[in-house]
Design a protein around this nucleic acid. Structure first.
Lengths: 348, 348
DNA sequence: CTAATTTATGAAAACGTTTTCAGCTAACTA
DNA sequence: TAGTTAGCTGAAAACGTTTTCATAAATTAG
């Protein structure tokens, strides 16, 4: 109601004065420093809440060279999987008193590079990144690594050696499950519409696909294997190519749900019966897969679990010895699960 | 590559030393203070880029009591409309050198209150909020207003007087367009499945609906007007209630796309032909409306435009005289547009 | 030509914390 | 008993800016 501008009151000095202690002790009490008497600590805590004290992050950050801010770079927040992941990351970081700066690369490598600059200049305490599919050179993340700032890659991670932590779904397993599911549903001629092999995601999925096919002694038709950006348009083109031939697939393992949706639409237009003549699986369990007709079998990636694990690992890294390694040597693998729907003829 | 941790180098003092000037002058030059010689300014700028200088936000924030951080509270990022809005806000704020802290209320009033606490403690320079539908008491935003921190509400805004800025779509117009479209398509018995009247959104839409009906001398059946939370379940219940009677609607104006989708599903199950026997419109132009069969006519709300305007207005407020009002007295209205699809029998 | 003003710069204090160093008491050790 | 150690606290410096105050140089007014 008041017109004038009020100041944020109550600093550490106010608590000090109220308790006839020095600001140093207050600071120690608030930061759980071991050398502070239990009685003093509780006194300080009480007075702090009584005065409504809030730590001034600018001041503490200036002194301690910590921002208590984490940077996040993702392709775009509107993708279902990422929206879920960041929601969880956001909430969990909050509990630990960290803020999150979310930046979108729009799936552009240039933008991604720029954002690393900005976030480095913002002096984030750590960086979480899901790279673009085109990112094959990761040197723009070097500055963080060199500086000793933890970097966590998830979903789309660098291949080979890199002094960072990796958290990813079990893409091999997901592909293996999906392919086996198609085979169990009776498919013999299975196509794989996948993403660029520059990305670890699609390397692993290709391997999972091949493994399942081999195990059932099914041959893989190279003309039915696509490695390209997983857009709606590319999916249509792939479908067209495959279905203008004499022999056509009876199963399609699509590496994302957009592609699966495009396949369904194509089948509808051409009068190809799904799931009778053609069975389709997607990947990611986007909510759209449940509402389209027929609904689409897909692979659940547990985005919330991914988010939770990211924060858990991050907190470990941030509290580790100052001179310890700021990354995990072993990648963290999140399990996946197949959700069966109409497009493969099973379940509702 | 290096193992050791590097410090962020180059402060304002390094520039000062390199140019044999005082830090005060450097600071002034960097902040475009009028009293600094043109030659000096360019020298400073040059040296700053040469040394790769980056302002330390903690330090400048501590001194100037500005965080260059904006808080954002929304129900959830995974809602299409909000995802688009925040993407734009994020990008535009970036250009002005501001960071954004995104917080999700999960559509819970309690959470929303908590988040205002956190963001107030974070000392954000301004707050942007899309409230929950249940928020009818807005007093948890008072602390910002009292403190002189600009508050911008969008989408779901407080009704009545409040010392904040409002940015919203033209809900009256959207409802008017949708209803008129149904009427033009031949509907005589139109139902309105809407949200709680506590929210300005649904008050305005109710008015737009009534206006269009009146203008065409169509009577409104009170049993076909619903004001309830717009969930999938509630939509089904509403449909059931209406379609177990003898006389049933031939048009449904649904106030969000989830409701429209539920209506389509219900019609499919009951063998009600859409659009022949029943025409349906949604609201928000969620991408799902385009892929479902039949595709759904909906109202485009131009989320990017909303985001852009929010940042424009915010920048005005932040650069205004320190003692000026920190809000616009007139609400900013964003236009809407009807996108015609199969569910009303027009277009593809 | 002197006095007043404008332009341009520097010295130093301030912002609110954290942390090093030192010191003091109480509790061990030998 | 004296010497060491552990537990607790305070004084003061530091973090990198911004800003007030003072002052010098350059310009304008009279």
């Amino acid at each position: 109601m008041a017109g004038g501008k009020k100041n944020y009151q109550n600093t550490i000095l106010d608590i000090a004065e109220a308790l006839k202690l020095s600001p140093a002790t207050i600071s120690r009490a608030l930061n759980n420093h071991p050398y502070v008497k239990e009685q003093t600590r509780t006194d300080v805590m009480e007075m702090a809440t009584k005065l409504g004290y809030r730590r001034n992050h600018m001041a503490s950050g200036l002194r301690s060279n910590k921002t208590r801010t984490i940077g996040l770079i993702i392709p775009r927040v509107s993708m279902f999987f990422h929206a879920e992941v960041i929601t969880t990351i956001q909430n969990d970081l909050h509990k630990h008193g960290y803020n999150l700066i979310i930046c979108q690369s729009n799936d552009s490598v240039n933008m991604e590079q720029e954002l690393t600059e900005t976030l480095y200049a913002s002096r984030v305490d750590a960086l979480i990144a899901a790279c673009t599919l085109q990112t094959v050179d990761f040197s723009h993340f070097d500055k963080f690594v060199d500086h000793g700032t933890p970097v966590i890659f998830y979903d789309r991670v660098p291949v080979g050696d890199y002094k960072a932590t990796f958290i990813k779904g079990s893409d091999f397993q997901g592909a293996y499950l999906a392919t086996n599911h198609l085979i169990a549903a009776g498919c013999k001629r299975i196509a794989h519409v996948s993403g660029p092999l520059t990305s670890n995601l699609y390397q692993d999925r290709a391997a999972g696909f091949l493994k399942a096919m081999e195990e059932h002694h099914l041959s893989v038709n190279p003309e039915w294997v696509f490695h390209q950006e997983l857009t709606h348009e590319n999916a249509r083109i792939a479908m067209q190519e495959m279905f203008e031939k004499d022999i056509v697939p009876d199963g399609i393992f699509a590496d994302n749900d957009t592609t699966a949706i495009a396949a369904i639409e194509f089948a509808k237009e051409k009068g190809i019966g799904v799931p009778d003549a053609l069975k389709i699986t997607g990947y990611s369990n986007d909510p759209r897969t449940a509402i389209i007709t027929p609904s689409i079998t897909s692979i659940e990636q547990f985005p919330n679990l991914v988010g939770t694990r990211i924060v858990e690992v991050l907190m470990e890294l941030l509290t580790e010895e100052a001179e310890g390694p700021v990354y995990k040597t072993e990648p963290v693998i999140i399990p996946v699960e197949l959700i069966s729907r109409m497009s493969t003829g099973v379940n509702k």
